[in-house]
Computed example of a mutant assay.
Amino acid sequence: MDEAQDLVESVRAVHVRIRDAVIDAMVNSTSEEMRLGDGSGGGDTIYGIDRAGEAVLLEMLGMHLEKWLPVVVVAEGLPDIGVGPGTAVLPPGASPSDARFWVIVDPIDGTRGLMYGKRSAWILTGISPIFAGRTPSLRDIEVAVQTEIPHPKQTLADTLWAVRGEGATAIRTDLRTGISSPLPLTPSAADSIGHGFGQVARVFPGGRDVLAAIDDEVCLAVVGPGGPGKGVTFEDQYISTGGQLAELAFGHDRWTADLRPLLTPVLAKRGLPPPQCCHPYDICTALIAEEAGVLVVGPKGPLDHPLTLDDNVTWFGYANESIRALVEPALLAAITAYLGPP
C-alpha cells in the first residue's frame, strides 16, 4: 500500500471513532445538552454535540497518524498554542517546522441539522504536504476523506475518499453489522438544470433576499419561468458544505453556489455584521468531488485559500462542463448586478 492510501486508511479509522463518539453522545445525552451553543471561539459556533467529536480528535489523530508525526492540525475548538487560532502540532511540544503534513479537519460539518435530527452531518479531513515559507492551500490537498455521521435512527452511513490523480471512492456501511459495500460516485451528466436540484446557499439570516434574487435570476435566465403552476427547478438548502459536495458527487445536485463572503458590503450598508461564511475546513474535501468529476471553483478560478481557520471562501460547484457553461455566465452576471463584480 502506498503512503497516500495508507493515510486514507488511517484517517478513515479516526473518522469511525469520531462518528461512534458523536452517535453515542446523541444517544446518551439530552437534546438540550447537544444544542447548547458557544460562539466565543474562532470559526463557527461550537455546540454541545461538537464537543463530542472534538474530545477524541487529537487523541485519535495522534494514535492513527503516529508513523507520520509530527503533523500540524487545523480544526475548530483547538486551543491557541502560539501557532495560530485553531492550530495545534502533534505530538504536543513538537515544532511546526518539523511537521511532515498539514491536516485540516472539521469534526462535524452539518452540526445544526444533526443535532435536531433533521439530516446527517459529515467528518471532513484534508491532508497537504508541508511547504517551506508558506501555509498550504486548498489546491495543495493530496488526500481527502469525508465520513457521514447519521442520526442514531439511521443505520447506514457513507464514506468518501480521494487521492489526487487517482479518482474518488465511496462505500456504504451498515452500522448494525459493520459490513460495507461499494457506492458509485456519478455526478449528473444532464445538460440542463431543468427538473433538477441546484441552488445558491442561503441558510442563515442576513442578505437572504439578495441571495434568493440571484438564484431566481440564474434560473430564469437558464430555463425560463416554466408554465403556470409548474416548478421547473428545485433547491436543497443543506447546512453542510461537505454535504453539498457529496450531493454533487452522488449526482443528486447539478449546481451549487456559496456567495456569502460577497455579501459583506451589502450587509455593512444595512448596519449588519459580516455573515457566517464557508471556511477552508468546511470545503477541505472538495478534492473528492473533483476526482469524481465535479467542477469546484471560485469566482476567479481554482480555490487557493490557505488552510487556516478563518479565511472566507466563495465557491461554485457544477456537475459537469455543460452545466457550468449554462449556469456560470448567468450566475456571474447576477452577482455583478446585485453585489458588484466578484
Rank of each mutant, 00 (worst) to 15 (best):
G82A: 05
S120K: 12
G117N: 06
L69Y: 06
D50Y: 03
A132Q: 15
L65D: 12
R119Q: 13
I130M: 15
A55G: 09
G126S: 11
T135S: 05
P79I: 10
R112P: 00
D44M: 08
K118W: 11
V27M: 13
V72S: 02
I123D: 07
L124N: 15
T87G: 03
P107W: 12
R112L: 14
H64M: 12
L65W: 12
A52V: 10
V89G: 01
I49Q: 02
V74F: 05
G113W: 03
R100Q: 11
T125I: 09
T45W: 02
D80K: 06
A25F: 12
Y116P: 00
D140H: 01
D50L: 10
V105S: 13
S137D: 06
R139G: 14
G43I: 03
S29V: 04
A52Q: 09
D50K: 04
G113D: 11
V105H: 04
T125N: 02
P91S: 03
S29L: 14
V27H: 10
L124T: 15
I141T: 07
G39E: 12
P107Q: 14
V72T: 14
L61P: 10
D98S: 15
L90M: 06
G133Q: 09
G113T: 04
P91L: 05
D80I: 06
R51G: 00
A94E: 07
A52D: 09
L90Y: 03
G77I: 06
L124A: 14
M26H: 00
I49P: 01
S120V: 00
S128V: 05
R100A: 09
F131I: 15
M26T: 00
G77C: 03
S120Y: 04
V74W: 07
G37H: 03
P70F: 07
V73Y: 01
S29H: 13
M63V: 05
F101Q: 01
T45V: 15
V71E: 11
V89T: 02
V83I: 15
I104T: 14
I108N: 10
R139V: 00
A121N: 02
K67P: 00
G133P: 04
M115H: 15
E32R: 15
D24W: 09
P136A: 10
L61G: 13
G82T: 14
I127A: 14
M60I: 00
P85D: 08
G53F: 08
P70N: 09
E66A: 12
G62Q: 09
V74P: 06
A52L: 10
V83C: 08
G126L: 11
G86C: 09
L114D: 06
I46M: 11
G62T: 02
I81G: 12
L78H: 07
I130K: 03
D109S: 03
M115E: 14
D80T: 11
V89I: 11
A21F: 02
V71R: 12
I104A: 05
A25T: 06
G48A: 06
D44S: 14
E66K: 14
G126T: 11
G77M: 01
P129G: 02
L114I: 12
I104K: 00
S40A: 11
I141D: 02
A99T: 07
T30M: 08
G93C: 01
T87I: 13
E76A: 08
G110F: 12
V56M: 06
T125A: 13
T125E: 05
S95H: 10
